[in-house]
Design a protein around this nucleic acid. Structure first.
Length: 371
DNA sequence: TAGCCGTGGGC
DNA sequence: TGCCCAAGGCT
């Protein structure tokens, strides 16, 4: 009787062998030269895998170069100031990735002598290291035959093996991990896992896969059934909530502007921003009242906003900000600014990590102050 | 489990 | 333009 876990696909030996040969040959001929493929330094592999989460290769490349120049070793990153680390991540999005990475790197220094652990349980226990990243680092840096199932792998294998389960469900990943455990090359797990992803990036793409160029075509049950364009099955879809926001460019008598560091949790954690608040679109002056109330509650000073200087839209994965930007000033000086609040000159804004939504406001600040 | 968590490119 | 999409993880 076959094990329900390790052999659920009943793939015969010759199929597995052909699968490995075709994939590994294709990968060795077609793999891209990428900065994180220059060596197998576990730290660099790790950094690249975190950056590549939900992010395109072309976007990551310059960030990876800059980041590894700034923080060449695991120890350098562990010792760095969080603000400097966030600044290096500015514009990449999903900022908790890099805060978790730094937490994890400190943990590796403290508990594992600065060496990225090779044990699946240990590496998986690190902050921000989930099933995919664990498998990717273990296989790529250490040559350990662990599955690294990401969106590419699910798409590619759903087609090749004709798996019609909904990949938007978390449990479905386990099905693909089982498949990879059957298929993976124990001679070269690194190239096998990367080959699967590279195939997904270059040939077996989400829309109009290049089946005629595919090295796996003869092994592909999806192609054989003519279902390559129907796979993978992906049902889940979340709607984007709209939020009415008002933001204030508050200019002090010396020309500096007021900025605020966001909380350490939730959206854009620990990033800087201009004072802003969500308001309910109900009565007259709702925006400026809400904004003045927000300012007073936070820095205990009264503010007025008399000129609307711009409108900005910013779309997140699950949220859309529609921001009216107002120019204003304090009518009573606040004695001492609370922690997380600061007056900054326009030049000094460059030193703080701002999310892209507020970088748009910086442009308005420059217009407001220099024009 | 499903919602939260960013951004920019492509069509 | 308004979607969908890209080497996920956390809660």
């Amino acid at each position: 009787m076959k094990s329900p876990i390790t052999n659920i696909f009943s793939l015969n030996k010759s199929y597995v062998k052909q699968f490995q040969q075709s994939l590994l040959n294709w990968y060795s001929e077609n793999k891209r030269t990428l900065p994180w493929r220059l060596n197998q330094d576990p730290y660099r592999v790790w950094v690249s895998e975190i950056m590549l989460q939900q992010t395109r290769v072309d976007t990551v490349i310059p960030y990876f170069e800059r980041f590894t120049t700034l923080f060449p070793t695991l120890q350098d990153l562990a010792d760095a100031d969080e603000e400097q680390v966030l600044k290096a991540w500015e514009g990449l999005g999903y900022y908790s990735r890099v805060r978790n990475l730094q937490t994890a790197v400190k943990e590796v220094c403290a508990a594992y002598g600065g060496k990225v652990p090779k044990d699946p349980r240990e590496i998986s226990s690190l902050k921000g290291v989930g099933p995919y990243t664990a498998g990717a680092v273990l296989s790529i840096a250490y040559g350990i035959p662990e599955p690294a199932v990401d969106g590419n792998v699910m798409r590619v294998l759903s087609r090749i093996l004709l798996i019609e389960e909904d990949i938007s469900k978390p449990k479905t990943r386990l099905v693909f991990e089982s498949a990879v455990r059957e298929l993976i090359s124990h001679e070269d797990p690194s190239s096998f896992n990367q080959g699967l992803m590279e195939l997904g990036a270059l040939i077996c793409t989400p829309k109009s896969p290049a089946c005629l160029l595919c090295p796996m075509r003869e092994l592909c049950k999806g192609f054989e059934a003519g279902k390559q364009n129907e796979l993978p099955v992906k049902l889940g879809k979340t709607k984007v909530r709209k939020a009415n926001m008002a933001a204030g460019i508050i200019v002090g008598s010396d020309g500096r502007v007021l900025i605020h560091k966001r909380s350490s949790e939730g959206l854009l954690a620990n990033m800087w921003e201009f004072p802003n608040t969500e308001y309910i679109q109900a009565k007259k002056d709702a925006e400026t009242n809400a904004l003045a109330e927000y300012v007073e509650e936070n820095i205990f000073a009264k503010a007025i906003f008399d000129e609307k200087t711009g409108y900005i839209e910013h779309v997140f994965s699950h949220l859309k900000w529609e921001i009216n930007v107002w120019q204003g000033k304090l009518t009573s000086e606040s004695e001492k600014l609370p922690a997380e609040w600061r007056w900054a000159t326009v030049a000094e804004l460059e030193n703080y990590p701002f999310p892209v939504s507020h970088q748009k406001i910086i442009r308005l600040v420059k217009e407001a102050i220099f024009v």
